[in-house]
């Protein structure tokens, strides 16, 4: 599932941050890396940008940016991600 499509109030784990660009980089630097849990807080008055909670703080991003983030719900199997600690 895409982060953009995640319903408000839901939490999920990031499975992948797609793309290879400045946006991906910035998102990952801000802590949105595979394995991090995110919660959808709200969308702005015109439907965009979105506000999510990640690593204990609030992060705003445009839908086009959230599109690059793949998440999976807490129940579903975490695919494509192996913790490498």
């Amino acid at each position: 599932m895409n982060l953009t499509n995640m319903p408000i109030g839901e939490s999920a784990k990031v499975t992948a941050v797609n793309g290879n660009n400045q946006i991906t980089r910035r998102l990952m630097e801000m802590g949105v890396v595979p394995g991090a849990s995110v919660r959808m807080i709200k969308s702005a008055p015109f439907g965009d940008p979105l506000e999510v909670r990640v690593r204990g703080y609030h992060l705003a991003m445009r839908k086009s940016e959230a599109d690059q983030i793949e998440v999976s719900g807490p129940q579903s199997e975490v695919l494509g991600f192996k913790p490498k600690m």
Binding site: M30, A60, M61
Partner: peptide, 11 residues
């Protein structure tokens, strides 16, 4: 291309 908006909403 649109630059990232990614922005912290501080407490």
């Amino acid at each position: 291309t649109p630059p990232p908006f990614v922005m912290e909403l501080p407490p």
